[in-house]
Nucleic acid binder design. Structure first.
Lengths: 340, 340
DNA sequence: GCAGGTTCCGGGAACGTTCCCGCAATCGTT
DNA sequence: AACGATTGCGGGAACGTTCCCGGAACCTGC
């Protein structure tokens, strides 16, 4: 597997290595004819530039790391697609690591990216508080970072997300207009910005229609898996709590609740409506189909990639915050009120 | 972000670069005390070895590429986890590309991996025929490759898979013993080994019980998406074909059929049982839960990683074929006959 | 026709490592 | 005490590129 190098071309044409290099990077200080000769020679010798040599020269690795909170949902894979769309076009490798909703693993992943000397990190959190120290250290060492979707609470970092508050508000409003009065909320991790925002949207919508919210019987904190959702469903019916709708932080959670609720005899959506945030294709294959807020995942990835590119080029550029528009998808799980 | 190098350590200790290098790689030709001094200095100077320098030196990139056929299912992400488990432990980066069941994209991904000069490729096909040329070229250029799950038809390459034939056979047998007589099969791409094997398992099981199989009304070829499955469901009921079970190549396909069948009024599993291969967590969140053959995904990834490591170390080593054991999961979609 | 400017090219250092080679000092053997 | 063998270390080339510097050849304008 001997690779042909720039030297081989030089030798082949009895020309200097420098000239070949110049010809290849389109430097102006080279005659048209020689440039063409070099290009021709490169073609017939099947020359392929060796990225690691230039990487060493320039001191970067041409790879960015992506750390995603989970991968059982196609959420992350869609975003990663978007990221790759723009990064691959710029000759940058993408390595992705899955935290499995575990802060410990997230921390490991961070270390891993450092070890691999990536040029930048794109990340969606599973917990901010647990690893805040590491993020700060990384930021101090001028590692370019951009956050997407699940971002840290109140921090000046480049970020791309959707309007969690407004979308949650409108979604809850639609449930209420559809006749639901006792809407239970399953919260996300409380050190993540989005949890607070979605909760706030829920609260404000409930307040607008003067619907009571009892913190201990209508707001639940859980993990992030199907199973965690199922457990909330159990306590909900075991404690005999009266409710006619559930709004979950994530579609994983929502699917978990919905399925267990059905198994426990609740009719969906007749007796209880189910809705969630961060929907993916998954919400269309469950029964009934799940009402959810669907962020533009591909675009989210592309934007994140653009931001990291910007940061890599100029580490001192201002931290931009991109807010994308998410679609509210009303489906059967909520009684399909106000279809779009 | 100035990095401290081996030279800094050498200067700091008034010692030669060579000695520092030797101390760091545990060469025997260095005194214990100097080694300790170097290690100490490395610690307090916060030295981190620069992988790209050694990569250039040794002529490899320390990354392997993984090409997966799809990512809407968590199948690939689990396998990738397994791969990362062993590769990360060996200091090797993993970059993954998703072909989205499109041979064209698969081809692009192949090119991409070449361009990034990965040390090896682990791949699960979406089509063999369309890109056979590229694979052969790659193999001729001595690029280490290992295939998992979806492998090319009859070719001597390192591969890790499950026993598609036997598992399909037993699964169909269980359906038959559960009372199903007219079992429809939805085939996978016909240039993939697994399609042939699963079909063969289906045929032989049907034959064993003397059940007729009419090729044009019981065997269907489709795409690989939920939608493709749904379309088969449509033609099935529109043409008024009599059937009491469906066995699909993949759970994506199965979920597609099952959901549309239900929408069209078929009772599952009472009227028709549904079963599939290559099941993941997805098959437990749909309604009813899906009967499927579940390969040991993590282990599959780990084995694939071990094989690629072997190939990288010694390109001339024999092409091993690892057959893993898959579990048949009987669930509600098939009437839950013979539960384990 | 000559100073000054362009254009084009070659030499060689540099990026951070590893490793071969050679030399000095120490060791063990007789 | 003298010898080769071993141990410990430094010098420097090499991996494949880029890029600075300097020099040769050519053009320009007076």
């Amino acid at each position: 597997m001997k690779h042909v190098t720039i030297k081989d071309i030089a030798r082949y044409l009895s020309i200097s290595v420098s000239t070949v290099s110049r010809a290849l990077v389109n430097d102006k200080n080279v005659r048209k004819e020689t440039k063409e000769k070099v290009l021709e020679a490169a073609r017939i010798l099947e020359y392929k530039p060796n990225p690691i040599a230039t990487n060493l020269k320039y001191g970067h690795t041409n790879t960015v790391g992506v750390i995603v909170p989970e991968m059982v949902t196609p959420f992350a894979s869609k975003v990663v697609s978007g990221i790759q769309n723009v990064l691959y076009a710029n000759g940058i490798k993408v390595i992705v690591a899955d935290s499995g909703e575990d802060p410990e693993i997230e921390r490991e992943n961070l270390k891993l990216m450092e070890h691999f000397m990536v040029d930048g990190i794109i990340i969606s959190l599973c917990s901010w508080r647990k690893n805040a120290e590491d993020y700060r250290r990384l930021q101090k060492s001028e590692m370019p970072m951009v956050f997407y979707d699940r971002i840290p609470h109140g921090l000046d970092v480049p970020q791309v997300l959707v309007d969690d508050y407004r979308k949650s508000f409108f979604l809850i409003e639609k449930l209420i207009l559809g006749g639901r009065k006792r809407i239970v909320h399953i919260q996300g991790p409380d050190d993540i910005y989005n949890s607070q925002e979605r909760l706030r949207g829920y609260m404000d919508a409930m307040a607008k229609y003067k619907l009571p919210v009892e913190a201990d019987s209508m707001i639940f904190k859980a993990g992030m898996t199907f199973e965690a959702g199922a457990e909330v469903a159990e306590t909900l019916v075991k404690k005999g709590i009266g409710f006619d709708a559930v709004f979950a932080f994530t579609d994983t959670l929502a699917i978990g609740v919905m399925n267990r609720l059905r198994e426990l005899g609740k009719k969906i959506p007749e007796e209880v409506a189910v809705a969630s945030f961060s929907g993916t294709e998954l919400s269309t294959i469950v029964y009934p189909k799940l009402t959810t807020v669907e962020p533009p995942l591909l675009q989210m990835g592309e934007k994140a990639a653009e931001l990291i590119l910007e940061k890599i080029k100029n580490p001192d550029c201002p931290n931009r915050k991109e807010v994308l528009n998410a679609e509210i998808r009303m489906r059967e799980s909520s009684g399909n009120i106000h279809p779009e």
